[in-house]
């Protein structure tokens, strides 16, 4: 099984490369919002027989809007609708996941990607998974990069049929 540290390292490096390629970091606004502001971001899964991992990019709504505008090439004062925001943040994690898949290919060549999911609110990892996270500043925007990894094996007891 690929260690959680490797997933986090590959995810962080890929995210920075995406930001440096597509974002005009000089025109981005922080947009962090209050520390207790609701969280907003996107997650994507990579799975094979040997590995299951969820990659998450989390910021505040305002921080995510700043990232979305940067990807779409919008001006810093331009409004971004929720649909466009979901699409943009989802695409960021989709690109990152593709890069991560390529980066760990030598350790697992059977990984498949899920489609990305945008969320607002709190996302809790599944019980039994290894969760690692790091804070990452993309331009002026503070984000959390979270990986939750581990194969979750559930064995159900056979049910007895009713007589």
């Amino acid at each position: 099984m690929i260690p959680a540290e490797d997933w986090l390292d590959a995810t962080t490096k890929s995210l920075l490369e995406v930001a440096n390629t597509y974002f005009d970091l000089s025109t981005m606004e922080a947009g962090s919002g209050a520390a207790d502001a609701p969280k907003c971001g996107a997650m994507i899964g990579l799975a094979s027989e040997d590995n299951t991992v969820q990659l998450m990019l989390i910021s505040t709504r305002l921080g995510s809007e700043s990232l979305g505008r940067a990807l779409l090439g919008f001006d810093s004062d331009e409004a971004i609708e929720t649909g466009d925001l979901a699409d943009a943040i989802g695409e960021i994690v989709n690109i990152v996941a593709g890069m991560v898949k390529t980066a760990v290919h030598d350790q697992d060549d059977a990984l498949n990607l899920t489609l990305p999911t945008f969320f607002e609110g709190t996302v809790e990892p599944l019980a039994g998974q290894v969760v690692l996270e790091t804070m990452l500043k993309i331009g002026p925007v503070e984000t959390r990069v979270v990986v939750s990894s581990g194969v979750r094996r559930v064995t159900r007891k056979p049910r007895s049929s009713a007589a």
Binding site: L71, L72, D84, A88, G90, E91, N94
Partner: peptide
Amino acid sequence: DSKAMRMIVKR
């Protein structure tokens, strides 16, 4: 399927 990516490709 991503509008954002279609915009980026065009740009």
